[in-house]
Design a protein around this nucleic acid. Structure first.
Lengths: 253, 253
DNA sequence: CAGTGGTCTAGACCACGGT
DNA sequence: CCGTGGTCTAGACCACTGA
């Protein structure tokens, strides 16, 4: 056959689509601009809508796009760097930290958290809910598990739940010194409640940061924070305090 | 109507499916066990295959399942914790680090890396490729960008590329002291080459760890490491050196 | 209300791994 | 070669947003 058939590598359509769209995003679109709707885009590229969506999903995962039901698909700004704390100053409730206490209720922690706290499987602990806002947008939801033994002075007179009690627990926690912490990051998908707090759909990809706080040789508290994976880049400033700048920044045209 | 219709929240089928499967995974399956194939599973649950796949995709994202084309779907072991280094001892090439140098070639770095290196946009740097293996399985692929100015002693006699040169560059890097580092973690999708190194399909979710190494007041090297998000939990041991144990561990039945 | 993205279906064919 | 997961299609309906 006369055709110059060098297509020995049948790249999936959605993958090729993603490449094409990425380039278009880099060169022809400004942050915030809205894309044509999925049906039009699919028709324009000559693929089924499901195939186009596969490409869009990846781009959203990479933080290049933002899709909202009933609204449309827009070009996302570069990911924001959110500091997950160098070693110092991250004891929960420290002044000026980025978290906003929302609630506090007693509950039995999930098995893995209970193990880290070395608590009995059915032992209930204080669970402080906090959210974190950055650049005017919610970026993380946290569950902070605090055994009663870490906050013995917690007055029974304080409100049994609600923001007031959350602040009380954090205040008590402050009075403990702390010798160190231990952090892990993994990929997860948003539970229904986290999704609502983060203004995303359930199952949205999140970065789960599990932190163990040590005090007096034992685990005084465990924090499980879920960050929006699409909009956040977690930064760990170990020593140098310099900012990392990323990606091309384009606005308006 | 007499129906006790409290289904005001029509949960998506794939979401419900995921819940059911998660519970089954917790209670009825052992690590390594193979699941029925997708067509059978879909039929068993009375949904289309695409819907079932949506649930499986999420479970794979969460590290609960592992799917391999031509083989089947198996129950994944709990994620392995991989240390991404406390402050000390992570200078690239340190003895006993977990990385295996694979190659080294000169190339011009991507724009964002160039910016971090404060190098000219078209300036070429040494690019060291390394891979990291843990528990017998590849977990990460790294590109380490080293400007020539960081390794001035690099002999021109050394091989112009290949593992030997990679080791030579790391050796030279070792001779620089370093004052700190700066780390960021974000979600990405595997490029074709990374995917191959990680034994995954292109587009697979990865955790991208960008590290800047400082020496003599400037950025001496930049590392971009992509970790398999499905199998890895990145650990940052700030001070306490204790292991985090996660999730229920089940083997055989 | 019209338009958007989100869910779902019932097929088809392909690429790969092992036998 | 067969069986697996991966890709793709052309529809349909639903849930949400904003005018």
């Amino acid at each position: 056959m006369g055709t110059t058939q060098l297509e020995t590598a049948p790249e999936p359509k959605y993958w090729h689509l993603k490449t094409v769209l990425t380039e278009a995003l880099d060169s022809e679109f400004a942050v915030g601009e809205i894309l044509p709707n999925e049906r039009d885009l699919a028709a324009r590229f000559g693929v089924a809508r499901a195939t186009l969506r596969q490409a869009l999903e990846q781009l959203e995962l990479e933080g290049r796009l933002q899709r909202r039901r009933g609204v449309g698909t827009t070009v996302a700004p570069p990911r924001m760097g959110v500091a997950v704390g160098s070693a110092q100053g991250t004891w929960p409730g420290a002044v000026g930290d980025a978290w906003q206490p929302a609630d506090c209720t007693p509950a039995v922690p999930p098995a893995d958290v209970a193990r880290m706290l070395a608590s009995l499987p059915d032992e209930s602990v204080q669970v402080v809910r906090r959210t974190r806002v950055s650049h005017g947008q919610p970026v993380a939801a946290e569950l902070l598990y605090v055994p009663m033994s870490s906050v013995p002075e917690l007055s029974a007179i304080d409100a049994p739940s609600g923001p007031a009690r959350a602040r009380a627990v954090l205040r008590e926690l402050q009075r403990l010194g702390f010798e160190g912490q231990d952090r892990a990051v993994e990929l997860g998908s948003a539970r229904a409640d986290d999704a609502k707090a983060l203004d995303r759909l359930p199952g949205a990809p999140v970065l789960v940061v599990t932190t163990r706080f040590f005090s007096e040789g034992r685990t005084a508290a465990v924090s499980v924070a879920t960050y929006r994976a699409d909009t956040c880049r977690l930064t760990f400033g170990d020593e140098g305090g310099v900012e990392i700048h990323h990606g091309p920044e384009r606005r308006a045209s």
